[in-house]
Nucleic acid binder design. Structure first.
Length: 457
RNA sequence: GUGGUUGUAGCUCAGUUGGUUAGAGCGCCUGAUUGUGGUUCAGGAGGUCGUCGGUUCGAGACCGAUCUUCCACCCCA
């Protein structure tokens, strides 16, 4: 116990069953990505320090795992910085690489770096782990998978429409019903800030607004005041705390509030476009809702913002998110390249499916038949049959050791292998096999042809 | 980064105000059953009580540090 090895905080090992279930989710997502015309790419697990730093705000920078240089990494550091414990100055000197924090920024880097080889609009998907030096919690890990799909090089709102459909399709396939696709638009949030004459406090304003359904109206107002937003300004936009009605009714009331804001009205128009399209092509199981309090931390969104809420009966943070960013590649020197993308949080979706018992019983193929090992001659006889079964696509194996029958049977039972073949000298003489069905316990003497047929069924 | 919480056998957990050799259920191994798993019965193995240090005649229990778990905040998938 004491001397046993361990793994770092916030990381996990996955058993065979868990991996199979994860593959089930990944395959579902991948199939839909492909159907919607996205191409797979992969990027390295670590990037240059400068590629990642400064892209996620101060909080994000703190959560990026930095990789210590190899060799005499202290040589490049100014000794005065070490003496004065100037961490900020030392870090970029001793860590020139860092683990990726998400898939979007590496994707932007990829697009800029390969711009001459890509055909725009470029649609890519990417399913890889990311790392964050966060404190673990329910559904929060330090290593987790993101499944991203993005389009760059198109300003068309049809992309947003398609992403809503893509979300709906994936969760429908996963039998996860009642998922809420919350949508908002950064331009509406800017519009609010504009109306109250405090555009400089946009971030503070949205961060506070984002907490509305969690801490309530009063606490939100409290926080806004604490951030220096005037009571008068808050009064002006008070109505947004209590928006009523369905999607289009909310749009109508917002139009009144945002009358004086050009960008606000633009944002509303975009939302209307998406909503009307979806109305004409109803979603299968998900629900599209307008949520003006939806802010999402990432600074780079400029248009639509998505967030996916799990069905209300499970307590879980968002299981996906995304949005439009007009200038993501700008930070790497490629201007005028509008992009929009979404992400699925694999690990959280897993927890939700587990809690709601939505995983199919058989998430993956497993061994269908195992042959008892009676000795060298018998094993050879078994192996010949196994090879033919494998050619037919049947997962078959031989118990490797000449162990006691009871032990071999027990092993088959534990692994829930549905068929066991007993082929000893008796069977070999008649070129037969004794096939035992482990579910029913019944046993039959069959030839190879019949064996294939029975095991496959 | 802030505050709280958890750790005893492979797993789930008991363990009294600090006092002999730290227990249970499940699982595991062996046998009853030399070509038959699940059920039953009998027997058995397995723990430096997360780690390091301290208090004490004596620590699984008390104190400190550290690691880990889970939770809230922050932030986020």
């Amino acid at each position: 116990m004491a001397q046993k090895p361990s793994i770092p905080k916030g990381t996990r090992d996955f058993s065979a069953q868990e991996v199979n279930k994860r593959h089930y989710i990944i395959n579902t997502i991948k199939n839909q990505f492909t159907k919607f015309g996205f191409q797979p790419i992969e990027t390295p697990s670590f990037e240059n320090y400068d590629t990642l730093m400064g892209k996620y705000g101060e909080e994000g920078d703190r959560l990026i795992f930095k990789i210590l240089n190899s060799g005499d990494f202290l040589k490049k550091v100014n000794p005065n910085d070490i003496k004065s414990e100037n961490t900020l100055a030392i870090t970029p000197k001793i860590a020139e690489k860092a683990l990726r924090y998400d898939l979007t920024v590496p994707f932007a880097r990829y697009v800029v770096q390969h711009q001459n080889e890509l055909d725009f609009p470029f649609k890519r998907y990417q399913i890889q782990p990311v790392w964050r030096a966060d404190r673990p919690q329910k559904g929060r890990f330090r290593e987790f998978y993101q499944c991203d799909a993005d389009v760059v090089g198109s300003q068309s709102l049809w992309q947003e429409v398609e992403f809503v459909q893509l979300y709906d399709e994936v969760f429908t396939q996963l039998k996860l019903e009642g998922v809420q696709i919350k949508i908002n638009n950064r331009k509406i949030l800017s519009g609010f800030a504009e109306i109250i004459g405090q555009s400089d406090k946009l971030i503070d304003f949205t961060v506070a607004l984002d907490k509305l359904d969690k801490i309530g109206e009063e606490a939100v107002i409290e926080e806004m005041k604490a951030k220096g937003i005037t009571a008068q300004a808050i009064d002006t936009i008070q109505p947004i705390f209590n928006l009523k009605g369905d999607f289009s009714e909310q749009i109508a009331s917002l139009k009144n509030i945002l009358l004086a804001s050009k960008s606000g009205l633009e944002g509303l128009q975009e939302l209307e476009f998406i909503q009307q399209a979806i109305e004409n092509m109803p979603l299968k199981t998900a629900k599209l809702t307008l949520d003006v309090t939806l802010a999402r931390g990432l600074n780079y969104y400029t248009g639509a913002i998505f967030e996916i809420a799990a069905p209300p009966q499970v307590k879980m943070g968002s299981i996906g998110g995304g949005g439009r960013y007009d200038d993501l590649t700008g930070i790497f020197g490629l201007k005028n390249m509008s992009g929009v993308g979404i992400s699925f949080g694999l690990d959280r979706i897993y927890l939700v499916l587990e809690e709601l018992k939505l995983f199919p019983k058989k998430t993956d193929a497993q061994t269908q038949v195992i042959f008892i090992n009676f000795g060298h001659q018998e094993a050879l006889y078994a192996m010949q049959a196994i090879r033919l079964l494998r050619d037919e696509g049947v997962a078959a194996e031989l118990y490797p050791d000449e162990a006691k029958m009871k032990k071999q049977m027990n092993y088959a039972n534990k692994r829930a292998i549905p068929f066991v073949v007993l082929a000893g000298s008796k069977e070999m003489q008649k070129e037969q096999f004794t096939l035992k069905n482990m579910m029913t316990g019944e046993q039959n003497n069959v030839n190879l042809q019949e064996l294939k047929k029975l095991v496959k069924a």
